[in-house]
Design a protein around this nucleic acid. Structure first.
Lengths: 186, 186
DNA sequence: GGTCGATAGTGGTACGTCCAACTATAACGG
DNA sequence: CCGTTATAGTTGGACGTACCACTATCGACC
């Protein structure tokens, strides 16, 4: 499945040893973690794109569709999609351009703000995203081989990292020491 | 540091709840893990590129330099660099083009194989990569905020995943509970 | 009610990645 | 020795992302 044939040794483990030999022992672990994340992302994205190819989708376009499929009335402001998917607004413009060409979404004006644009899922878009979700679940998410415990650690550790990086506030997944109640149940 | 202001809630936790509500409970955890990895990579890469900007480097070009800095005589076949960094050969061509323009590496012919090309670090390249490594260690790897235990779990889980994906054989980092011997040592 | 700073979205550019196709060379097999 | 196949690297194109600059509109304040 990877585009190279397997290497005899793990290059990241190798890099970690190099780092330690260099005396950067404190940084070696996180370096390996960061590099592992980069490689894993590359593999996961490649795999996802391969799975989605029959649907003429890429993962980033799929993410837009999936987001809309959970939105009220299957529509959402461009701005909000950009914020929730945490990509640059131009990336949304790009994705929506292509999705619109494919007839999977529609741009709609917003009556209360003539600057803004709503993206709405079309019927065909809804069908496609349902099929694509099933394919991703079966062929990617259920086959990662991560153990339950690994999943939880990864999600928690990266959630903490994302929160620290300013991705979001209200770290709902951080250990236990939360202020008991954000007053609004929004 | 992120290009958006923080969201009030974690969109990945939200997506996980949506997945569960949809009945995809088995896939929900891995979906969250995969999505977390994708977002974390995006943040890490952006941060790395920002740190490397003063050196007129990107992370992928830095990776080439770092690889060479640990190689015998600071040189390596393009092919080998491509395999070790696990990117498509064209990505190496691209990176080496730019690094060569910047005077940080040099292409050299290989006497024993006229198809092949060696990439060699220049003196300036060696200086730059040392400074860049220090900057990355201080500003990225030492500041991820990952706890020791998280680092080890991430590295181990992703190492297992990469091995299963065919990235490399000889899973040196896998826990202990392996099927003692797949009969063929292929 | 007009000015002036924020905001929503888009166009253009730069960069990294992959893929398909291509050139040149090497290695193998008759 | 020659034809076939494999390998190393490059070129050109598609796509996703970020950044900058720009337009249009909103909103807030005097």
């Amino acid at each position: 499945m990877p585009q190279h044939e397997p290497l005899p040794r793990d290059p990241i483990a190798e890099a970690r040893r190099n780092w330690e030999r260099e005396g950067w022992t404190q940084a070696a672990g996180p370096m390996a973690a960061v590099t592992s994340i980069m490689r894993a992302q590359q593999l996961l994205l490649g795999q996802a794109d391969r799975i989605l190819k029959p649907f003429r989708l890429t993962f980033s376009r799929y993410e837009v569709l999936a987001l809309l499929s959970f939105a009220r009335e299957h529509k959402m402001l461009m701005k909000k999609a950009s914020a929730l998917l945490q990509v640059h607004p131009t990336s949304i413009t790009n994705a929506v351009d292509r999705l619109e060409d494919a007839g999977l979404v529609r741009r709609e004006p917003v009556s209360t703000d003539r600057r803004a644009v709503n993206v709405a899922l079309t019927l065909e878009g809804l069908e496609i995203v349902e099929q694509a979700s099933r394919a991703l679940n079966e062929q990617l998410f259920l086959t990662t081989g991560f153990e339950e415990q690994e999943v939880e650690t990864i999600v928690a550790a990266l959630s903490g990292f994302r929160a620290r990086s300013g991705d979001f506030t209200a770290p709902e997944n951080l250990p236990v020491s939360l202020p008991p109640s954000p007053p609004a149940a929004s």
